[in-house]
Amino acid sequence: MTTNELPPDAKVVLHRYLRSAREALVWKVEGLPEREARMPRTPTGTNLLGLVKHAATVEIGYFGGVFGRPWPHPEDAPWLAAADAPDADADALQAEFFATADEPAARIVGLYRQVWDFADATIDALPLDAAGHVWWWREGRRDVTLHQILVHVTAELNRHAGHADILREEADGSVGLVAGNDNLAQGFDYAAFTATVRGIAEQFPQEAR
């Protein structure tokens, strides 16, 4: 970049990274049977479809109510009202982390893509210094800007995309950063590498928990 060139518009750059994180998360669910997309693969129940449902919930909240722009389709995400109720219990609060038997994977993914349009409208309409209020954050941190929320949500989605990387590899061996690019070194013997790393780990005693 020369001294006469202006840097890229900050909002354009932030929005591009947000879109990339969304796509990275969603494609980890695509092509999986319903059973595999729903299957919990950690002791705390983390599952691929639940990550997408949670991401939709996150974007509805941060790009909606935080900026006084309520989600216009509450019938498509009924768990939101249950979680926001004053008497919400643990089950209501966990509803965004898994798809019920009557919520097909295609519906959850379709809802998330619908949420993208909703969130993008907020991003397009407001300047980066637009004020928002995150009422569920602790006192002293609740007043935010669109700039801060764009960074916050992108960081959260990328974290969940990393979770999804591992879950999808466990489900069917698929790996990669984006669809069509496995991002692996060509010709590298990953089986031998894994065996080497396992052999080193097994030299150390297994401590009782």
Score class of each variant (00 low, 15 high):
64 G>D: 03
77 A>W: 12
142 R>Y: 07
71 W>S: 04
121 A>I: 04
87 D>V: 10
36 E>Y: 07
194 T>Y: 02
101 A>D: 10
90 A>E: 13
143 D>T: 05
127 P>H: 05
143 D>I: 00
170 E>R: 15
88 A>T: 13
202 E>H: 09
105 A>W: 00
147 H>Q: 14
30 E>T: 15
168 R>N: 05
96 E>P: 02
203 Q>R: 15
183 N>A: 14
139 E>V: 02
25 L>A: 06
65 G>Q: 07
146 L>W: 03
67 F>K: 13
40 P>L: 04
190 Y>H: 08
31 G>Y: 03
176 G>N: 09
128 L>S: 06
26 V>C: 07
31 G>V: 13
158 N>G: 06
67 F>E: 05
191 A>I: 10
95 A>K: 11
190 Y>R: 15
85 A>S: 06
173 G>I: 06
180 G>L: 08
53 K>A: 07
1 M>I: 11
156 E>R: 03
55 A>E: 02
139 E>Y: 03
9 D>E: 13
1 M>F: 06
183 N>K: 01
62 Y>F: 14
175 V>M: 10
100 T>I: 01
28 K>N: 03
148 Q>E: 05
146 L>M: 05
32 L>K: 09
112 Y>Q: 08
157 L>D: 03
76 D>R: 15
142 R>I: 01
159 R>E: 03
93 L>T: 04
81 A>G: 13
16 R>S: 08
132 G>V: 07
88 A>C: 06
67 F>T: 12
105 A>E: 01
134 V>E: 01
38 R>M: 07
145 T>W: 11
187 G>M: 11
60 I>E: 00
5 E>V: 15
155 A>L: 12
84 D>L: 13
164 A>S: 06
161 A>D: 04
131 A>D: 13
101 A>I: 02
69 R>V: 09
209 R>Q: 12
92 A>R: 00
93 L>A: 04
65 G>E: 10
186 Q>V: 15
70 P>M: 15
107 R>P: 03
23 E>A: 14
200 I>E: 11
101 A>R: 08
201 A>Y: 05
80 L>N: 07
173 G>K: 10
198 R>Q: 09
176 G>M: 10
94 Q>R: 13
119 A>E: 02
139 E>N: 10
42 T>H: 10
196 T>P: 00
31 G>I: 12
86 P>S: 09
58 V>E: 00
93 L>P: 07
155 A>P: 00
171 A>L: 02
206 Q>D: 11
59 E>I: 15
207 E>G: 10
18 L>T: 04
165 D>I: 00
171 A>Q: 12
152 H>Y: 12
192 A>W: 06
82 A>E: 15
143 D>E: 15
5 E>C: 11
155 A>E: 11
15 H>W: 02
61 G>E: 01
42 T>R: 12
192 A>D: 11
32 L>S: 09
49 L>N: 05
132 G>A: 12
80 L>S: 04
138 R>K: 14
113 R>S: 03
190 Y>I: 03
144 V>D: 03
66 V>A: 11
49 L>D: 08
84 D>H: 10
169 E>H: 14
17 Y>V: 00
29 V>E: 00
23 E>T: 11
195 A>R: 14
120 D>L: 08
195 A>M: 11
144 V>A: 08
136 W>A: 12
184 L>A: 14
87 D>F: 06
116 W>S: 08
